[in-house]
Design a protein around this nucleic acid. Sequence first.
DNA 1: AACTTCCTAAACAGAA
DNA 2: ATTCTGTTTAGGAAGT
Length: 184
Amino acid sequence: MGPTMPPSKKAQSPSSGLGATRGLSPLYREAEAADLSLSLSASFSKAEDEELTSLSWLHESTDLLNSFSHSGLRSVSPLQDPDGHPLPPHSPSSSSPSPDPCDSSTYDLAMGANRKPPYSFSCLIFMAIEDAPSKRLPVKDIYGWILEHFPYFASAPTGWKNSVRHNLSLNKCFKKVDKDRSQV
DNA sequence: AACTTCCTAAACAGAA
DNA sequence: ATTCTGTTTAGGAAGT
């Protein structure tokens, strides 16, 4: 019956359906400002609840942003085995109750800088936008943010930018807003 | 095996 | 005219 799967991300939190909607509403308002940048769409209308269910992972991820800017994503435990095994984002035998798709607290920039980050583009974009003061960013800045935090992309083939744009368009979590006269 | 999620590539249109 | 941005389609890899 659901021919149209909401955004993506299997972050369909099994129950988090209430607190999931908080602190993001103001973003929508800015989305109307008028700045050709991307913003996180946070329309928490119960009516649209069906279309933004995946937004639930966002609210939880905001927490990761905390630890992100906190540790600057640089002093954490490596996500790799000493052997070199690219451990999956989710430890099989771990007891992490938080299904955060973008858990940056397990990524060591120093080690993973030159490796493909264990996050999906959606996560990277989300982190970039969340890291922005106004919670919105022009694509260019998203590129820049990603490059700054994940130097891997500096030497990666150009296709990643296409992927970023592709995600921006596809993910309903991201909303395009007109250029705002702002900065006011 | 089927389904879902994500990645990558590419074509295309519109705006700057 | 070129580049950037945004949308869309398609194929395939990987995980559940």
